[in-house]
Design a protein around this nucleic acid. Structure first.
Lengths: 237, 237
DNA sequence: GCTCAATTTTGGTACGGACCAAAATTATGC
DNA sequence: GCATAATTTTGGTCCGTACCAAAATTGAGC
C-alpha cells in the first residue's frame, strides 16, 4: 500500500496496524519508550507520529501524550439538523459553550459576502462545541443587524435556528457552503485543546433568504480528525 | 492572530506575509538560504515550511524546491458539471490521463456499498486529472457490471456522464458524497507528484438510480492545497 | 548549437543532544 | 483524608551534523 523503505514509514506502518487492529487503544506509550521500541531517534518517531496524526488516527494533548482518535463525527453542513440532534443520533454526548458575544463592524470578507458597508453592525458569537468531552469545533456566527433587527437583544446561547424560524420567520433559506483544509492557530487552536498550527477543516456558510439577501455569515473551524462531511443529493443530468 | 513566540512561528509568519502580499511568487529560496536569512536551524525552518504547506500556501516538488501554491480550484461534488467545464470556467487548463482500466472483484467497502456479493465483477478505472499542468486529483471509478451491462466494452477515457446518460439512460441519479481529511500514500502520492504521507482530501461518491440501487462507487484523492469544496442548497427548516 | 557526462545544489532522511514548560505523579505536612 | 509542595515524566522547541538520491546546473566534447 505505501512505502516501507524508510524508518519513519515502518514505524508509521507498525503503529497504524496496531491501531486499526485495536491492539492499541487509549493512550500511546511515551515518545521515548516508542523510540526505544522501534530503535529510532525521537525526531524520526515524531515524523511518524505526525503522519499518523494527519491520517486522523492519533492526536495529542499538550505535554500529556498521544491518544488514539475516537471515531469521526458525520456531519452534513447542508442539512439543518441541530448539533444536539445529529451528535446524539450517532451516540455522542454533545455540549456547547458560548465563549463570547459582541456587536462589531464587519471585516472585509463578511462585508463583501453580506453586501454591507463598513458602518453596518454585526452581532457575532463565538462558541465551542464538544463531543464526549472533546472540543471538536469553534464556530463564529455573524448576524447582520440590519437584516435581523434586535438580534443582539435575544439570548443567543439557545438554539439559533429556532430563533430564526420563530422570531424572524425564516422557514426557507439558501446556503452557500465551502469546505477547505486549513491550519488552526491561536486562539482557536487553544479552544480546541490543540497546538498553534494544527491541521483543521474550515467550513464557511453564507445564509440567505429566498430573495438571495444574505443575513448570516459563519465560519466553523473543525479538528480535522473529528469530522467526516456527508451529503446526499438528487441530481439531474 | 497567531503565536509569534517561537522561532518556527516567526519564520512562518514572515514567509506567509510575503506570500499573501505577493512579494514572493514562484519558487522559494533554498532551505539553506532561508536558514541563513532567518537564522534558524534547518529542522526549525522545515517545521515552518511544513505548516505553510498545511495552510495550503506552499508546496514542494521532490528534491527540487518549494513553490507558492496557485489559487485553489472550486469544486462542487454535488453538481454534475464536468471537470472540463468547471475548470475552464475558472480559467484553468485541465487535462486528464487514464492510467488504468481493469475488471476486478469488489473490495469489502465497495461490495457493502453497492450491495454486491464477492463474485460480482466491477469495471474500474484510475485517472489523474491536472490543472495548468499540475496533477491535483487521482480518481478511482468503479462501475458495477451487473447494473451497467457491458460497461467494460465502452471507451471509458471519454466522458462517463455522457455514457451513463445516452447508453444507460440514467438522467436522474442520487449522490451520496463524503469528504474527509486524509493522507496520500504511494502510489497515489506519486501520481500527484507529492510524497508518501502528504496531506490530502478524500471524496467518496456513491451513485444510485432513483430506486436507490447503487451502481457506481468512486474515490477521489485530492491534493489538499488544490481544492475548495463549494456547495449551494435550498433549505427548509 | 547540441548531447551527454560530470558536478553542484536541493530537499529527504536520520541521528544525537540539549533545554524548557506544563502535565502528571509522588511525597509532604497538616 | 486532603490540600499542597516537590519531583518526575512528558511532549515542545531548537540546535547541529551527516549522508543520500534526485534534480538542476555546468562543462566537455563533438
Amino acid at each position: 500500500m505505501s512505502d516501507t523503505s524508510f524508518a519513519y514509514a515502518q514505524v508509521r506502518q507498525a503503529i497504524s496496524h496496531q491501531i486499526v487492529e485495536q491492539k492499541l487503544t487509549g493512550s500511546l506509550p511515551s515518545e521515548r519508550e516508542l523510540c526505544a521500541k522501534y530503535d529510532v531517534a525521537r525526531s524520526t518517531l515524531r515524523q511518524a507520529l505526525g503522519q499518523l496524526e494527519n491520517m486522523g488516527l492519533i492526536y495529542r494533548k499538550n505535554r500529556s501524550g498521544w491518544y488514539v482518535c475516537p471515531r469521526k463525527l458525520k456531519y452534513d453542513p447542508m442539512q439543518h439538523t441541530s448539533f444536539l440532534q445529529y451528535t446524539t443520533a450517532q451516540g455522542f454526548q454533545p455540549s456547547t459553550k458560548l465563549v463570547e458575544q459582541k456587536k462589531q463592524k464587519p471585516c472585509k470578507e463578511i462585508a463583501s459576502a453580506l453586501t454591507l458597508d463598513g458602518r453596518t453592525s454585526l452581532t457575532s458569537i463565538l462558541r465551542v462545541r464538544s463531543v464526549d468531552g472533546r472540543a471538536v469545533v469553534v464556530e463564529e456566527l455573524n448576524f447582520s443587524n440590519k437584516h435581523l433587527p434586535n438580534i443582539d437583544k435575544h439570548d443567543l446561547s439557545l438554539s439559533i435556528s429556532v430563533l430564526l424560524k420563530n422570531t424572524y420567520h425564516h422557514h426557507n433559506v439558501l446556503y452557500d457552503i465551502s469546505v477547505e483544509s486549513c491550519c488552526l492557530f491561536n486562539p482557536i487552536a487553544q479552544y480546541l485543546n490543540t497546538y498553534d498550527g494544527a491541521l483543521g477543516l474550515k467550513v464557511t456558510r453564507i445564509v440567505r433568504d429566498l430573495d438571495g439577501t444574505a443575513f448570516e455569515f459563519d465560519r466553523e473551524y473543525w479538528r480535522h480528525d473529528a469530522l467526516m462531511i456527508e451529503n446526499k443529493a438528487k441530481l439531474h443530468f
